[in-house]
């Protein structure tokens, strides 16, 4: 029936649209020549150049530090917040506050923090980016963990409380283990969001400590060498691996729980 097939046109168009640029990037990263348009033969030379690029390496190190810091902070604060919001309050206002960082345009958050840091005269550095990223990192961890909490069975917690366990014991022995997959997913989310975040880092990083997206931004502005394509390809490969591993892990944890 032609009408049925018609709906497949936008479906396939979506994937062509999403993947054409990426295929071009990957192919061009193996280009022997410098032109971004003409393929002049297979070569790994841009990967070599990339390995020798100190600015990119430094950016990568900074990004990883920021992402790890953000993940740790966001996971702890976000999990507590999620449990607190689900079990210890019914305030709609708090709900809204918890979600605000997720719906606020990043530019608005970025200038807010820039103004704030300037007002308290805080010296910028990687710590200022970590603090900034945690604002939204925490919100996303809280959101993911809450989804899990809402579906979780509360009878165990109630039983624990009825049997006289302290709130802390109930939390560490019962709630946390139930939430583990949600927390892991939230942490991974905070990590990946932080790694690719540009706008907030752009406004809150010290000029001496740019994160990788900032380095890439200044490189793109100066016209791009195929080094950038090589970098994109590597990021893509790493991400792909992470996705596969994450999928396996969730399946594993789900089958265990």
């Amino acid at each position: 029936m032609p009408r049925r097939r018609l709906i497949y046109v936008p479906f396939w168009a979506t994937y062509v649209f999403l993947y054409t640029p990426i295929i071009v990037l990957v192919v061009m990263s193996f280009n022997a020549g410098k032109s971004p348009y003409v393929f002049e033969g297979l070569s790994l030379k841009w990967y070599g150049e990339l390995a020798g690029n100190d600015t990119i390496r430094q950016g990568l190190v900074n990004t990883l530090i920021v992402a790890v810091g953000t993940t740790v902070l966001s996971t702890v604060l976000g999990t507590l917040l999620a449990v607190g919001m689900a079990r210890h309050t019914r305030s709609r206002l708090l709900d809204a506050l918890g979600l605000l960082p997720a719906v606020l345009p990043d530019l608005v958050l970025a200038i807010g923090l820039l103004v704030f840091y300037a007002t308290i005269k805080m010296t910028l550095g990687l710590h200022s980016v970590i603090l900034a990223h945690t604002v939204f990192g925490m919100a996303f961890v809280a959101a993911v963990v809450r989804t899990r909490l809402t579906h979780a069975d509360t009878s165990l917690e109630e039983a624990s409380r009825d049997l006289g366990a302290s709130p802390l014991a109930t939390f560490t022995r019962i709630t946390l283990p139930t939430l583990a997959p949600g927390i892991a997913a939230g942490a991974l989310l905070a990590f990946t969001l932080s790694i690719d975040e540009f706008v907030i880092a752009f406004f809150t990083a010290a000029p001496t400590e740019p994160t990788l997206p900032i380095v890439i931004y200044s490189m793109v502005r100066f016209g791009v060498t195929p080094e950038i394509n090589a970098l994109a390809t590597i990021l893509l490969a790493v991400s792909f691996t992470v996705i596969i591993v994450a999928q396996r892990m969730t399946r594993l944890t789900e089958s265990l729980s």
Partner: peptide, 11 residues
């Protein structure tokens, strides 16, 4: 922007 936004830019 970096030199004027904060008390000490580190530069």
């Amino acid at each position: 922007a970096k030199l004027t936004a904060n008390a000490d830019s580190g530069i």
